[in-house]
Design a protein around this nucleic acid. Sequence first.
DNA 1: AGACCAAACGGACCGCGGTCCGCTTCTATT
DNA 2: AATAGAAGCGGACCGCGGTCCGTTTGGTCT
Lengths: 197, 197
Amino acid sequence: MSTEPPLFDLHRRPERRDAARNRELLLDAAHRLVDRDGVDAVTMDAVAAEAGVGKGTVFRRFGSRAGLMSALLDHGEARWQGRVISGPPPLGPGAPALDRLLAFGESRLERTLVSGDLMVAAAGRHGRSLPAVAFLVAHVRHLLAELDVTGDLPVMALSLLAPLDVTFVLPQLEAGVTRERILATWTDLVRRVVEAG
Amino acid sequence: MSTEPPLFDLHRRPERRDAARNRELLLDAAHRLVDRDGVDAVTMDAVAAEAGVGKGTVFRRFGSRAGLMSALLDHGEARWQGRVISGPPPLGPGAPALDRLLAFGESRLERTLVSGDLMVAAAGRHGRSLPAVAFLVAHVRHLLAELDVTGDLPVMALSLLAPLDVTFVLPQLEAGVTRERILATWTDLVRRVVEAG
DNA sequence: AGACCAAACGGACCGCGGTCCGCTTCTATT
DNA sequence: AATAGAAGCGGACCGCGGTCCGTTTGGTCT
């Protein structure tokens, strides 16, 4: 549950104790604000005030508002990734690859619906950074390989993930397209891709 | 080449003469700024100053920065749509539907590469507004129907368009994925969907 | 022509994300 | 324990998108 940011680059010295303490303070404060008033209320000034630190500290720790939002999102994402990697089937290992892939789509759509606003806030300028989707691509790619799909699997995996992205799902919901239609069509899409293997 | 914004709702009175004049002034100014200094230099204050009007006028005419960017984008989009609807095959009518669809993908990817930064700037909060993609969805949907693809065609059309969206294309390019790989994989994807009809 | 009023205008104003820099605090070293 | 210097800190400051409202302008009706 701790939230170290280095994780790569083992050369870098660990955070100073006060810095680590402030990181936790800020994450707690941000979480509290999201729960109480929603994502839009999470301004950098508000987080700083709620945590009792200076505004500069927020930027020093998280780089930007999108960075802070990503950090908030990561808690839930990590738990979800755990379910994908080692949870019960069909999402987790143990089920046939196609079942896993379809369960993955449904579960991912669910997460998009639940945390969509955070995902939007965590995306800077253009869409989310590639590291943020690296896990998704890797997993889909792996399942596609197991299903003997040939071709450029990394790009194909991302292409299959695109329709489930928050930037496409939310506008459709607003336009009256139901969750069920989106999921059914994604399932159809995946089946066609796999069957044409 | 004129840029009327009503176009729907015929009840609404036409724009007053000074308003129409200012709209043109502003679009010209914005275009000039884009060409000279790039999209990021197009701040609302800069456009107002360049056009010689007040800042409030810019917002009155275009609603927001994203709205102004959409208006800029629309010039090129309309020309491109014309090529799709009535240009030479295979993009325009006259070629077999699958050829048209594949040509559509290539041409759309090209446009994304050319005007990607404008597209990003024209997108508010979450992805582009649905009206902005309505034409794309309608066209792909039409071609899918001609190809006897069954299912939820509007959602399927959008799902096929998603991988070509600027929010997915630009990060991939930055990550070293070539234009050719993206196009080849999209072609592959479409072929699989159509063949499994 | 004059008068009326909706539409349009302009720019002061606000809140937010992000930067900067002088000051403080931690920690490694001796 | 003393010290040096890197890491962290805070908050004033800036530019931008967006709003507001008192003033001006242009179409319309008599």
